[in-house]
Structures are given as C-alpha cells and as structure tokens.
Design a protein around this nucleic acid. Structure first.
Lengths: 187, 187
DNA sequence: TCATAAACTGACTAATCAGTCAGTAAAGGT
DNA sequence: ACCTTTACTGACTGATTAGTCAGTTTATGA
C-alpha cells in the first residue's frame, strides 16, 4: 500500500470521527505513519486532500455499480441491482458513506465542478430517461425521478445503518423497500 | 431584537456560508454587532452556540408544523399538511435548513441527547402508528415508514431548492410528489 | 438617590495548526 | 560509479482563534 493511499485512509477515518476542521494535518500524517511534511508532498493543501478523498470514494463506488449492473438485462433488474449494490457498498464502507454525506452538505461541495459530479450521475439518468421513453416508468420530470430514487436509497441506507438488522432481515427490508420504490415510479 | 437572537442570526448566516470551523467567533460577534467577549457571555463555548442554534431552529420548525396540522382532520390531510408545511418552511428558511442538514451529518450530532431529537419526531410517529392500526397505511415497520416519509420530503426539498420553480409549478410538484408518496405508503 | 446586579467591552494570551524549507534518503537511468 | 530526480523528513513559523478577565456601562429595585 503506497503512502498516498495511506494518507487518504487515515484522513477518512479521522474526518468521520472528528470532522474536517477538527482533524489537523499533523494527526493525519501520524495516523498514516508519515512525517507531517510528506502529506503536503502529496496534497499541496488540506482542502485538496479533502476534495481528492471525496473524488476517490465517488469513483470507487461508481466503478462498483457500473460493474455490477452490467450483468443485468431488464430495466427493473438493473435498477434493483443499482439499489442493492449501493446499499451493500454502504454497509461495507460505512466511513466512506458517512464522509460523502458530510461532504455533500458542507461548503466544500462548491469546490467541485458541476460536471465532475454529473459524471457519476449521468449513466443512471440515461437509463431512467430510456425507461420513461419506453413506458416502463411513469412519465415524470427526469430530475424529480432521479431525486426520488436517490432520496429513497439514501434514507433506507440510513435506516439500515442505524437498525443493524440480521442478514436475512436485511435482505427482506431491501427487497420490500425496492418494491415500494418500484410501485411509486413504475407506469 | 435582543443580542442573543442577533448572535444566533449571525452565526446561522456565517455557518452556512463558511462552515462551523471556518467561522471564527470574532466574526460572528462582529456580524451581530457586539464585542467578541459578549458572545461568551451568552454562550460559554462555541460548541454550545452551535448546539443552541440547532435546537432553536428545530423547535421553531416543530412549532410551525404542530400549529399548521392542528386544523386538519383526516390522516391524509394531516400528512399532506405536514409535507407542505415542511417544504414551505424550508423555502422561507433556506439557511436554517441548510444548517440543519450540515449539523445532522456532522460529528456535532452526537452532542445532543437522543431524547432531545425524539421530542420533535414523536408526534409524527404516533400519528403514523395510528394510521397503520386503522388500516389507512400499509402495515410496515414504523421506523421504515418514518424513514421513507422523511427521506421523500428531504429529497423533494433538495430538488425544489435547486430547480427554483415558479410558484404554480412548485405547487404542482408538491401536490404530485405527495400523491406519489401516498401511493407508496397507503394501504 | 444610590447600591447592586446584570449586561457588555475589547485588549490580551496560550494554544493550535497549515504550510514551508533546508536538507536527507532512495530509486533509476546511463 | 555517478548523477539526477523523486520521495520523504521534521523542526520551524506566521497567522489565527477560542476563551479570559479586569473593568465599564446600563438596568433595576428599594
């Protein structure tokens, strides 16, 4: 594991526990097992470290989803895979999700270009538009549809994190809440 | 307007723009038109100011909702009022909502007692439990139901804030998305 | 009217922290 | 072997900031 990755790892852990600004770079460096100056060799400023961490996590989640939905064919199955993969990833990467949440509702978000965000969102939006055109989904504003799906996924994720159900119960919840979502958006 | 309120006002404005930790207490005091020492006369520490601001906002929103739903009788109308009041309040109190969002996904949240949070949530949960018992809503886990409604409201709010529709369009969106929500949760 | 308390001031301090820099160690090429 | 570049170190600094405190002003009530 290279040192840059170790810095990102340490930063993630500490940011989630203490917040961005309550985590000094010196502490991150210590946790990563490097000297305080080396951190600035990899990341010129603390802000750039925060942004780099966010983009790193976003792209990892993006890859995972892209890969997992590639095996499905029907739109409903693709969407369900989207849903389950996101929730499973969030379970296995709790800190990453918590960090993204914190970042998304912080003034840092402004530091990221709009198209950088859209990059990860575009594939799903295209899928949704197709499904609307083919009459699979209700004919509604694409942005609203996207918002509803994201919001649903996000909130069920919050619930799963807090309630920590057994694996079988968890699968049941995911399946049932997907059906509810589908009922709401399908034509 | 008393000085304590002015501090809360100034803090809200600056926190939303720069984040908690990028807003020095000196700047808050200046914005509020008081000396830097006076801030600590009202709030012993900066953290206590942050928490006090959060609780202040929560209680104001809580009052508004409680009052507005008191005129409705049927469960569906009460829930719709809950929904519209929340969205309207968020529109008129953008900074407040943004702040709550930031706070909710920050490590500050841990500083608030669980029952302090539940206080604002309990009335709605009781309403929902009644509606389930009476067969108005699908028989599902109360926490999941609550999560779904909050998540739906929250995400439509995000959409409304970003897209800034005309008033008539806005009303249409609120009405239609409530119908979608209702379709998903009603028996 | 005056004493007492409450509200308020702003210069000050001790601590913290992002980022620098002069220099060392390691890697890679020729 | 030798040179060049890249990776890395950690003591240091200038700037910033939460919180203090000795003292001033304003309100209150007897």
């Amino acid at each position: 594991m290279d040192k840059k990755a170790k810095v990102l790892d340490a930063a993630l852990k500490l940011f989630v526990e203490f917040g961005f600004h309550n985590t000094p770079t010196s502490k991150i460096a210590k946790e990563a097992g490097i000297s305080s100056g080396t951190l600035f060799y990899f990341f010129p400023t603390k802000d750039e470290l925060v942004v780099a961490l966010y983009l790193d996590i976003k792209s990892k989640l993006g890859c995972e989803i892209t890969e997992s939905i590639s095996q499905e064919t029907s739109f409903k199955e693709i969407l369900k895979k989207y849903y389950t993969t996101t929730l499973d990833w969030a379970k296995e990467h709790r800190d990453e999700f918590k960090f993204m949440e914190q970042f998304n509702s912080s003034p840092y978000l402004k530091k990221i270009a709009e198209d950088e965000i859209q990059k990860y969102v575009k594939p799903l939006k295209e899928l949704l538009q197709n499904a609307i055109d083919e009459g699979v989904l209700k004919n509604m504003d694409l942005e609203i549809l996207f918002t509803l799906i994201s919001g649903h996924t996000f909130s069920i994720n919050q619930y799963l994190i807090i309630s920590e159900p057994q694996e079988s119960k968890r699968e049941q919840i995911i399946s049932e809440t997907f059906d509810l979502l589908w009922q709401m958006i399908s034509a």
